[in-house]
Write a protein that binds this DNA or RNA. Structure first.
Length: 238
DNA sequence: GCGACAG
DNA sequence: ATCTTGTCGC
């Protein structure tokens, strides 16, 4: 798919933070997404091993969730892991993977945060901006925010607030949802990335669940990105 | 100063 | 994320 160059990835941590503050203002987080119009959903993930990053974007048909396209991209890991700056570690290789994608997914689900981020722009939001497509963040653990925790039943959800409630601020801004994708199993942290609102983000992730904790698109991407001995790229080709 | 901290 | 054996449960 075509990808406009929004900015340079090779920046210092302080420049990265300045970029995030600037880009956060461009996010559209109040737009409902009509799931009945969705034909393809992509799962996105990156694995890292010994300085090599492998990105995977797997497109599934929707709502039947069958894999229709898988693209991979390898590149040296350019940035250390710094909480809040994950996009600058995964962005370059993700951009390359998306450039190889032929199918135009109607929505993207990332293994990471959307707007539930210290500056409101996690990897799902940031890449959603680069790609100009509806995106959702589905993280396995919390980066920021507070929640009372969802009930134990499958499908239960609780609001993820920017900060814990206080007497001075009874209802802090809602930045996402903590969703119980399987009964009595650790919940996932869902937050809209770009061009989608929270309700639609939760609805999309919910519609992509099968019998596992993570939505199918993310599971497929996670497996595709896995850096195992058998999937190491050959160093010499002819 | 101390604790928290996506992948 | 990755390093790692066995083990509990459907």
């Amino acid at each position: 798919m075509h990808i406009p160059h929004l900015h340079d990835w090779a920046v210092t941590p302080r420049e990265a933070i300045a970029l995030q503050k600037q880009l956060a203002g461009q996010l559209v987080l109040d737009r409902p997404l009509d799931l009945s119009a969705i034909r393809h959903v992509a799962g996105v993930d990156v694995s890292v091993r010994e300085g090599l990053s492998r990105a995977a974007v797997v497109v599934l048909s929707f709502p039947d969730l069958q894999v229709v396209e898988t693209v991979l991209a390898d590149a040296p890991t350019p940035f250390p892991y710094v909480p809040g700056l994950l996009t600058f570690r995964e962005g370059p290789v993700l951009e390359e993977a998306f450039a190889r994608l032929k199918t135009e997914p109607d929505a993207l689900i990332f293994d990471g945060a959307g707007c539930a981020h210290p500056r409101g722009i996690g990897v799902a939001s940031h890449m959603g901006l680069w790609l100009g497509r509806p995106s959702v963040g589905c993280a396995k653990t919390r980066l920021t925010g507070w929640s009372a925790g969802p009930g134990p039943l499958q499908g239960e959800a609780a609001a993820l607030l920017a900060r814990p409630p206080t007497s001075a601020e009874p209802s802090p801004p809602c930045i996402g949802a903590v969703l119980r994708t399987r009964a009595n199993v650790a919940p996932v942290y869902v937050s809209p990335g770009h061009l989608i609102d929270q309700a639609s983000a939760v609805a999309l992730v919910s519609a992509c669940l099968s019998r596992f904790r993570l939505p199918e698109p993310v599971r497929a991407a996670h497996r595709a990105a896995a850096l195992t001995a058998a999937s190491q790229p050959k160093l010499s080709g002819v």
